[in-house]
Design a protein around this nucleic acid. Structure first.
Lengths: 193, 193
DNA sequence: ACCTGAACACCGTTCAAGT
DNA sequence: ACCTGAACACCGTTCAAGT
């Protein structure tokens, strides 16, 4: 494990302890037993550190190694459900995970060719054989990510970290219900084409 | 216009100019020609100021005066569409409006009996006569707000402020498509009960 | 390669004192 | 009622210098 990864791991631990708003470079340095300036040998800026944290959260450490999506016998809606559920679960693994991801994934000069792009294209691949137009499929994917992100930001703001187990179960249910609403809408749209 | 309202208005102007991350009490004080400490006569904390800004953004200055929702001949889905579209439009009136609202609306000891609660209950009133159970209706409302918030946070991060007019038109279309997906799902759910 | 020491330009907030 | 002056405990970041 490189020193850079140790710093990154410490940052994620600190995030879970104090939350995104209290995650400062100075606190992180203190936790590492080091002066604040020393961090800048490993990350160009706090922003770069947060970007690396985002990659860990949404990467989950496996998708990239697994390569492109495996062919399955699952129906398209089961596959979409799996991806959406996995995205929420990934963001829930760290405190303020959704806010971290949504706020730091898109903006900046970073062209963002990463795991997020990969998830997007995976969904497109799943939807392409369904008869939906390219633009129609894009609209569906945007809708699902908007829902996943909005849902998860809200629950993390409300519930704190970690979620109590039975609260989590309740939210899992609520999430599935909303997702099914959307997927039902998609099915209707497919039939009407 | 009270001095407090002048400070609040200046804060909203500053937000549009520099964005939420650069909105500092010191910059706001400078813009008002005043020392930073002077702000604390009008707002207990920056948090209190941000809360007041949220109220302006989502209140839009009219809902409360208008009193409870007017009875209309619109169908339930047209009414829901109006509220959801209005919520997005309200957040788009200021730079980072969605992030401001979503991040500062829920947390904290603030019980949050405000315009948000009112919008939620309005939706419940709209959905009650449709035959949906109370829990079912709550699930629908949560889904719609998750979608609206997620969609708007994302577009504001991507597009900047203000959105170019034809970009806005494109996003209006995309928003309507996703919303219709959800509403179609709700219709199907109603039929199956 | 990694860190220290020390600085720089910032933050939010408090509070006595002025007008 | 509203603001100043001055302080306090923080921020992110840079950079020569050490080991």
């Amino acid at each position: 494990m490189s020193r850079r990864d140790e710093v990154l791991q410490a940052a994620l631990d600190l995030l879970d302890e104090v939350g995104l708003d209290s995650l400062t470079t100075r606190r992180l340095a203190e936790r590492l037993g080091v002066r604040p300036g020393a961090l800048y040998r490993h990350f160009d800026s706090k922003r770069a550190l947060l970007d690396a944290m985002v990659d860990v959260v949404i990467g989950g450490g496996s998708e990239v190694d697994d390569g492109p999506p495996q062919p399955t016998k699952d129906t398209w809606d089961e596959q979409i459900r799996t991806i959406a559920t996995g995205a929420r679960a990934a963001m829930l693994t760290h405190r303020d995970g959704a806010r971290l991801v949504v706020t730091h994934l898109l903006p900046g000069p970073r062209a963002e060719p990463g795991v997020a792009q990969l998830a997007w294209e995976t969904m497109l691949t799943i939807l392409r054989p369904t008869g939906l137009s390219e633009a129609g499929a894009a609209g569906v994917i945007d809708t699902i990510f908007a829902y996943v992100n909005g849902f998860t930001i809200e629950e993390q703001a409300r519930d704190g970290f970690p979620q109590p187990a039975e609260r989590r179960a309740l939210r899992d249910q609520g999430f599935a219900i909303g997702l099914d609403l959307i997927l039902t809408g998609v099915r209707a749209k497919m039939k009407s084409v």
